[in-house]
Design a protein around this nucleic acid. Structure first.
Lengths: 127, 127
DNA sequence: GTTATTATAGATTCACAATATCTTTAATTA
DNA sequence: TAATTAAAGATATTGTGAATCTATAATAAC
């Protein structure tokens, strides 16, 4: 019952981009990695998922790096979590008790409260 | 970002106890394990945590087994989760950004919504 | 008391996924 | 062409949940 480190890395990297006006500038992963004091190649792997999901852009070559998209403020925390960790549900019931399983219903409701909260917050709220 | 199987096992074992009037009768782990089709020794380890936390009782020897306590209806799902998985927080921030870290605040709030929901449901809601 | 039954504890193994590193390749700029 | 940077692939490392096995302790029935 934990979020992944990768999600933590992603959120903090995004925060760095936001704080450094990276909607107009590009930031190489080296800079991000040393700022967070984590492995650059691993962080790169994480950020690539955000690129794939179209939440940030990346460009190779000199003066390249990662960059926020224009609409970055609207991206929700939920979006980031899903892009990194996937959509796996928090509670996987090993027992198939069918529709009426109250345990599953109950856990599902709790999880929905979490997800709803994550959906209600966006990157704008980090500023 | 998942609950443990152990919690799943525990909840379903409790449900079995509830459904079999185990507030007056004792149910050996063998019966529970075969009902859920899981390892008996492992399930025993899980249930022992509930015993330690005083949510159920156990007695050794012939005619022994696990039994609900009188006040079982008031036990919340949160209680069970904590007894099994511990109180570890869902989001462990690797970066110490101090009090003002908005990422942490935000994730904490989302997590609180989950926990509040788990606290608002009790074993009585499984009946 | 003896035997059978049951939970508990300890040690250990197993399996798998997250995390991390290394190396190569592709893209881009100067 | 040379330098810089992201992406991809392969592989290693690690941590830990899950599970098993064995031994011990407690209890009931006889």
């Amino acid at each position: 019952m934990k979020f992944s480190k990768a999600t933590d890395y992603a959120l903090h990297a995004l925060l760095y981009l936001i704080m450094h006006n990276a909607d107009t500038q590009r930031v190489p992963v080296q800079e991000l990695a040393s700022s967070l004091d984590v492995s650059a190649t691993y962080l790169s792997k994480v950020l690539t998922r955000l690129v794939k999901a179209n939440y940030i852009t990346a460009s190779s070559g000199a003066k390249g790096g990662y960059q926020l998209r224009k609409n970055w403020e609207a991206i929700t925390i939920y979006d980031i979590v899903v892009a990194i960790d996937g959509e796996q549900t928090l509670f996987e019931d090993s027992f198939d008790h069918g529709e009426g399983c109250k345990i599953q219903a109950l856990m599902q409701e709790a999880e929905n409260n979490l997800l709803h909260s994550l959906k209600s917050k966006s990157l704008k709220d980090l500023t």
